Every structure is written in structure tokens, then in C-alpha cells.
Simulated scan of single mutants.
Amino acid sequence: MKYGSLIIEKKEYVYLKRILNISGYVEDFETQKSLQLLINELKNAQIVDETDMPDDVIRFNSKIRISSEKACKKNLELVIPSQQDRKKGKISVLTQLGAALFGHSKGDIMEYNFPSGSQKLKITDVKQEKSEKKISIKI
């Protein structure tokens, strides 16, 4: 991991904690697994101010390029649950892949369990939306 641990901006951290508190009652097993993964990841994350957020860290509205060890490449955008649109490559932070990617940075390699088996994924690029398009998170 490039920075030693996940890095999360303060307002996004508070927003995630709220989502996790509300979502604790979901019955879908896959969503429960995603939530537990995210809860565990947040325990050791570095929480930083907006001004201290590195540009290459995956956060809300980040455009991400990943590649697998089987040479599969995919472009994604990480979004809040209500903006998920798989056809457009927009994945929710509450999906298993979204939860696994959140807070990681460009160059990180991670193990991910696909239905077809475990594979290593490399985050090959991370781009941030312009600040006026960033999600507005009220605390």
C-alpha cells in the first residue's frame, strides 16, 4: 500500500460512518460482506483534511482504472449508493469492489475475490473530478 494505510477525507469518513450505521440492517448477504469489509478498513484508516488529500487516492467520484493479473482492464467511477449505474461503470462504495477500492491509491495492488476466484488487481490510474462536481457532503 503506497501510503501505509487507507487515506480518507474527514467529511467522506463521517458520511461513510452514517451510511454504515443506517445500512446495518440490510438482509442481502453480499451487501453485508461489503459493509463489514468497509467497517474493518475504516478502523486503521488515516483521516485527513480536504487540503491534505493526495490526488491519487480513491474517494467519492474518483475515476479509476484497474487491471487484473489476467490482463483484464476496467474503468470505473466510485459513487454514493444512490448514484450507482453499472452500465456506466459507476459502482457504489457499498459494493464489494467499491468498498475494497475506497481509500486505496494509484499503484496499489490488492487481492480481490471474484465469483470465479481470487485475483490480484492493480490500480493503474486515479483521477479526481473537478471540485465543483465533487459530491457535497453535509455534516
Rank of each mutant, 00 (worst) to 15 (best):
F60M: 15
T31S: 03
V79A: 02
I80D: 03
K87I: 02
H104A: 09
I123L: 10
S34Y: 00
M110T: 11
G117N: 08
C72Q: 09
S82R: 14
F60P: 01
A71Y: 07
K138M: 08
D56V: 11
T51H: 05
S118F: 03
F114Q: 07
S105P: 08
R65K: 15
D55C: 08
E69C: 12
I64H: 04
D55T: 13
I19E: 06
P81Q: 07
K17H: 04
Q36E: 14
D49F: 07
K134Y: 06
S62W: 04
F29Q: 10
K138A: 09
S131G: 04
N61A: 09
L76C: 12
G89R: 12
L20W: 04
N61F: 08
E129M: 08
N61W: 01
T51S: 14
E27N: 01
E111G: 09
L16S: 07
N44G: 14
G89D: 07
K33L: 03
G24K: 00
S105H: 03
L20S: 08
T51R: 11
E111F: 05
P54Y: 04
V14N: 12
I123T: 07
R65M: 04
K11R: 15
L78H: 01
S82E: 15
S62I: 05
L16D: 08
K130G: 04
A99S: 15
L97D: 07
A100M: 14
E41L: 11
K106I: 13
E27M: 00
D85L: 08
I135L: 13
F102D: 01
K127C: 11
E9S: 09
A45R: 06
D56T: 10
K87P: 02
K120G: 02
S116E: 13
L78F: 06
L37Q: 05
D52P: 05
N40F: 00
L20T: 10
K130C: 09
D108I: 12
G107F: 05
T95W: 04
A71W: 05
A45C: 15
Y13N: 14
S62P: 10
L121V: 11
I8C: 02
S105K: 03
L38N: 00
T31I: 12
R65I: 04
F114H: 09
L94V: 12
K130Y: 01
F60N: 02
G98S: 07
V126I: 10
R86H: 09
G107L: 09
K73C: 12
N21I: 03
S136P: 01
V48P: 12
K133L: 15
